[in-house]
Design a protein around this nucleic acid. Structure first.
Length: 607
RNA sequence: GGGGUGUUAGUUAAGUUGGUUAUAACGCCGGCCUGUCACGCCGGAGGCCACGGGUUCGAGUCCCGUACACCCCGCCA
């Protein structure tokens, strides 16, 4: 009796588990995969075999092959097996929910490559297992089709970006991760240098300076799909290491960057969603965005604009409680008009005050407009004259039954609170149209922002961002009014990219450092290499970086970045699978010339 | 750094006013079953109620603290 052919050595995989159809009936096939499900009828045994492409039903019958049938009885979920058999019609018993539902494979040979312990959670499309448990066994979570689908889309987006940019003269060039720790901006992860006692590398928070140096070196167009590292507190849309599509171009201005990115976004939408988007994208100035939406990344898919009434309050005078005082102190008064009160109950509206406070508000004055234009349920009702109410109503286009939500005080707080309320209410009231995608550019950011904490101006983008030429004269005299040649790309209220035209003139760069309160010596010490580079013939240049993870999340679907990053960290930056970050021994620390300081109140030293 | 929610079997959840042996479903194990695809039927095992204190005759339940996860504010040039 001749030896049976062996799987892998003699019998190669002929098909994946997602492709067989009625057209394949009669073929002998070899499938490899995992046992998704088994239905054992004693006589015949059904197995759903799974690989990354899909599911195929395999049937084992004693009369077809007794040995395979007997072995099939021992199969359990997630066993890794090989099957050889004949593709057969299911006759009238098709499964319309499966792409391969017209056929099944009648097995003539079965081998178990590996058995599996019972998984800690089911390997199914829809599970409600705690994320904590899924992250601890991420390799099992990644077996599930929804995650595999996202990573396939992510692959396509990476491919599309490379193809698109390469086709337009961009070179994919690498930059170091281990760099000099840069002050300001995001906190760097530090890496102690064994060879240089007492010194540290910083992990690059972006390739910013190096891509500029590529421009100085004459590479003209650079791109990279690159990891960035930032040691800041995390959110659902922020991870300590994340990926950017980073690009930089020489001899260009803003419209050139916009055109390239608009084309790139069109490609990404195409491969991720099969959707065509229209370009150019609308442009909104930073000031317009703040005035109308309260944020610099407005979601324009719905209305609910903010409405400023500072001037009306000033004109109305002192009859009103609180408001005029806020205006006198240089504050602003803005409001959000909820048509028909948004259909919210009084209790729900009351609850908004707590929400507003969580966003930094001191309170949330509101007013419901009555039939005669009077204000009710409002602390402002008493002091507001009919004229004031009418003027406010007209400006806010408000009428009977509408509810006005007021904020007054410092613009930053007022805008922040109302801006966040606006998006929250839109979600809660279902105002966001399904399937709509709004892409837009926000431009003319301020070059500097005043930091109360630092008691000084700080760069709002980064210190290498070019000021608008007409503002250069004000750099030192009125830094607050200088606009930057910076731009953000916004998708549905999410910042998905940001960039700028850079400073290519060392004299301007020196002035910016001075405006930021960075002394020549300090600038020399920290960015000497860049200042030098700018003096040796730097071309005009600029670029942008797109947040790849966030893009995948928004285009492929996902609640958080953890759904689109294969091996993500928790909110505290830990990896529940590997246990990173972990403790290291004294010997390792000694070698690095580093000593760990025990945390106050910590349990004990396990060294 | 601050606010909020949660933690009960492998998984998801229930657990009343603090009171007998902590329930259910799915999964798991054993048996039966030749057309299932959420297969079905019979039987069984499985618990440090996150951890540490406290209140009480008695705590899964009440109080305090800790840990972990998630959401939000601050932070993210």
């Amino acid at each position: 009796m001749p030896a049976r052919p062996r799987f892998i050595q003699d019998l190669k995989r002929t098909h994946s588990c997602g492709v067989l159809t009625a057209a394949d009936i009669g073929k002998t096939v070899v499938l490899f995969g995992w046992v998704q499900n088994r239905r054992d009828h004693g006589g015949c045994v059904f197995i759903d075999l799974r690989d990354r492409e899909g599911l195929t039903q395999v049937v084992f019958e004693p009369e077809t092959d007794a040995e395979a049938h007997q072995l099939a009885g021992t199969l359990r979920l997630e066993y890794v097996v090989a099957v050889r058999g004949e593709v057969r019609s299911r006759g009238s018993q098709v499964n319309p929910r499966l792409p391969t539902g017209e056929i099944e494979v009648r097995a003539t040979q079965l081998e178990v490559f590996n058995r599996a312990e019972t998984p800690p959670f089911p390997i199914e499309d829809r599970i409600d297992t705690a994320e904590e448990k899924r992250l601890a066994h991420r390799y099992l979570d990644l077996r599930r089709a929804p995650l595999q689908k996202v990573l396939v889309i992510r692959h396509r987006m990476n491919q599309a970006a490379r193809t698109y940019l390469s086709g337009r003269g961009f070179l994919e060039l690498e930059t170091p991760f281990l760099i000099r720790s840069t002050p300001g901006g995001a906190r760097n992860f530090l890496v102690p240098s064994r060879q240089n006692p007492g010194k540290f590398y910083g992990l690059a928070e972006s390739p910013q300076l190096f891509k500029q140096l590529y421009m100085v070196a004459g590479f003209d167009r650079y791109f990279q799909i690159v990891k960035c590292f930032r040691d800041e507190d995390l959110r659902g849309d922020r991870q300590p290491e994340f990926t950017q599509i980073d690009l930089e171009m020489s001899f260009i201005a803003e419209p050139d960057v916009f055109a390239i990115v608009e084309g790139l976004m069109a490609e990404l939408f195409r491969v991720a969603k099969g959707k065509e988007i229209s370009a150019p994208f609308p442009r909104l100035t930073y000031d317009e965005a703040m005035a109308r939406y309260g944020v610099d990344k407005p979601d324009t898919r719905f209305g609910l604009p903010l409405c400023e009434v500072t001037d009306l309050v000033r004109a109305a005078g002192s009859g009103l409680p609180l408001l005029p005082q806020a205006v006198e102190q240089g504050g602003v008064v803005k409001l959000l008009c909820l048509p028909g009160g948004g259909g919210l109950s009084r209790t729900e509206l009351d609850g908004l005050e707590g929400v507003a406070k969580s966003f930094g508000a001191r309170g949330l004055a509101r007013a419901k407009i009555g039939a005669g234009g009077e204000w009710t349920q409002s602390p402002l009702a008493k002091g507001a004259s009919p004229e004031f109410r009418a003027a406010v109503g007209e400006r806010a286009r408000a009428g009977e039954g509408d509810v006005l939500l007021f904020q007054f005080g410092k613009p930053k707080i007022v805008n922040g609170v109302l801006g966040q309320l606006r998006t929250l209410l839109a979600k809660r009231l279902g105002l966001i149209p399904e399937g709509r995608d709004d892409l837009l550019w926000v431009v003319d950011f301020p070059l500097f922002e005043y930091s109360d904490e630092a008691n000084a101006y700080v760069a709002s983008h980064h210190p290498f961002t070019a000021p608008r030429p007409e503002d250069v004269a004000h750099l030192l005299s009125e830094p607050g009014r200088v606009k930057a040649r910076a731009y953000d790309l916004v998708l549905n209220g999410n910042e998905i990219g940001g960039g700028s035209i850079r400073i290519h003139d060392s004299a301007v760069q020196a002035q910016v450092f001075r405006a930021l309160g960075i002394s020549d010596e300090e600038a020399r010490a920290k960015f000497g290499f860049l200042l030098d580079a700018l003096r040796f013939g730097a071309p005009p240049h600029g670029g942008i970086a797109l947040g790849m993870d966030r893009l995948v999340m928004l285009l492929a679907g996902g609640e958080s970045l953890r759904d689109v990053i294969p091996f993500p960290k928790t909110q505290r930056g830990t990896d529940l699978m590997t246990g990173a970050p972990g403790e290291v021994g004294h010997a390792q620390l000694d070698e690095l010339h580093v000593a760990a300081v025990p945390v106050a109140g910590a349990a004990k030293d396990t060294g």
